[in-house]
Design a protein around this nucleic acid. Structure first.
Lengths: 336, 336
DNA sequence: CTGAAAGCGCTTACAG
DNA sequence: CTGAAAGCGCTTACAG
């Protein structure tokens, strides 16, 4: 079996208490003794058992992170931000893909609690009331990233999604567009999608443009979702001159692809905007006008916030709004 | 504090042993008693402490997974494959981004061992001898994905990288190309990159084509890496008619982008192939001819293998070669 | 400065 | 079928 603290104690001719003290850098250990213990550790190849330690000190130094899908470029960036900060503070992360599915979310929440995570990061598009209740009841320190619960009860980190979509829509209107379509995430549980839709509608209203159901499509927030929305939109006789895709840049890319396939030029014939600023968005042809969410920072800030909570530090704000940036690229232009 | 097994025992008027038995579905518990215990669990809202359990049973049901960077679409897919399988078998994963940096790799390996992971998945481009020694010495069950150690000592799951690059090169030659450039990963520690380069050279040799240093570039395996390699290649007076990009599709995309920017048409003026088949590769314009690695499967198979090892099941093969697929798309064509 | 002992929250032989 | 007790590998008050 593996060598344990007892073995190094015997080897160094001290008690396990002393070994534990040098392991934890408790200052009041004789230098001589310390050296002997260190040598014994070296010699035996001892590695402390973090599980046993955790049980005793009631702290695991691990966070649970729940995301819909690591395969989505958005979450991938957020997770990297989380992990980098965690690594700095000696935390590890248990990664859970929930597919934004309630069953999986509840199961994972239980597991993370049972594994005694010091805290949990929930990154997603929204939170059901049931899950929120469960989170609150469990009393586990938790921060929500990229979205929030309805009443802002839980600490959260996100951009102002409504405003972002509003500004994007306003930009297109200011370019001269009067016929605007909306491509959105079909996930009915997505709070974020609803907020972005509100932003779109608000911009239309302010400019006395009517929101037309014929130009509203929803599908999954990925390339083929965007492709399909475009395919379906093209069945209309009357076509818009601009499409605000609020799902994400992948969906925008899919829409652009479909347009190109049927000979519609982007942005000459139709302008298309995206959301998130995925890494490909500046490289594809045409490059995509988008709302740059600070994805990495959302992860990093969420993680920092959680660590602060664990250290009982004062939070300046409980619900942090991080800035986004509207980036104009090739996929949008004034209408012909 | 949280409720513990003792509390539910008291509530149900039984011993902790009995509660533990119903928790673990040990069959020999009276139905009546069981019901009482279940009610007590329900009433108290008890959640077992997995850490305490792990310490006792010497099993944590968690795997550690080490990857260079979750931000890279390749690892993102692999991790999803791993997590899906793990979830089926009730394992969780601790995710570690190492940036293929030895210091981080060694640190994380230690941490994962200290946290008593039941097994470790190392996904990457190669393994240094030092790290391998450490892995072997620790005796932790471990499987390597997407690459292998030099002597194939560790169990591994990967494609035949040399052959894949060889076939891609052969395809381009068969299209009529005689002037082929190679864009590769600049990471000198990447075993996988070296193998693909071998495949490229082998194909040239077989066709009596010379490998020219002037047409060989290395840079990081991402879009801007590809962009820069192309930029640099364009300084040559004599240009190739085809470029085999062995880093990945992102680099191929970057190279294509640069070509387009300076008015070089792909594939009319120059053919460019990629590697991995990232999800964007079929959607960008031109879509990218590539080697489709079964990224998800590499993760899934690795995870299954690790689970088998833990169950002491016989492994049919220790070093699994999974199939790849050469997908021809728009970015390659016969030379003019 | 150091050690003996209790205890973290479980599981599981052992006895009945 | 059930319970008392030992023990998983640590940490930390307490005593000296």
């Amino acid at each position: 079996m593996a060598v344990k603290i007892k073995d190094v104690a015997r080897e160094a001719n001290v008690s396990v208490a002393t070994v534990s003290r040098v392991l934890n850098d408790v200052p009041l250990v004789n230098e001589e003794t310390k050296k002997r213990v260190l040598e014994a550790i070296e010699k035996t190849g001892y590695k402390p058992n973090a599980i046993a330690r955790s049980l005793k000190i009631q702290k695991t130094n691990t966070f649970g992170i729940m995301i819909p899908d690591i395969t989505d470029s958005f979450y991938t960036q957020v997770v990297r931000g989380v992990e980098d900060i965690c690594s700095m503070y000696d935390y590890n992360i248990i990664l859970c893909n929930t597919d934004f599915n309630s069953k999986k979310e509840e199961k994972y929440l239980d597991v993370l609690i049972e594994k005694q995570c010091d805290g949990i990061l929930y990154i997603g598009k929204g939170i059901s009331e049931e899950l929120k209740e469960k989170m609150l009841k469990s009393k586990v320190p938790l921060v929500v990233g990229a979205t929030h619960d309805h009443e802002y009860t839980l600490p959260s980190v996100m951009i102002d999604n409504e405003k972002a979509a509003y500004e994007m829509t306003k930009l297109l209107i200011s370019l001269g567009h009067k016929k605007l379509a909306l491509f959105s995430d079909s996930d009915t549980k997505s709070l974020v999608a609803r907020e972005r839709e509100e932003g779109f509608k608000k911009a239309l209203k302010e400019n006395r443009l009517e929101f037309l159901k014929e130009w509203y499509r929803v599908d999954s927030a990925n390339v083929s979702g965007g492709y399909k929305m475009m395919e379906d939109l093209l069945k209309e006789n009357n076509l818009p001159t601009a499409i605000v895709v609020t799902s994400n840049d992948d969906a925008a890319l899919g829409a652009i692809r479909k347009a190109i396939e049927v000979g519609i030029k982007v942005p000459e014939d139709i302008s298309i905007s995206g959301f998130n600023d995925f890494y490909i968005s500046e490289w594809v042809k045409p490059s995509i006008t988008t709302i740059a969410q600070p994805m990495y920072d959302i992860g990093a800030v969420s993680a920092r916030m959680l660590i602060k909570m664990l250290n009982n530090e004062e939070l300046n704000e409980k619900n942090i709004i991080v800035p986004y940036e509207l980036i104009q690229r090739e996929s949008t232009a004034p209408p012909k």
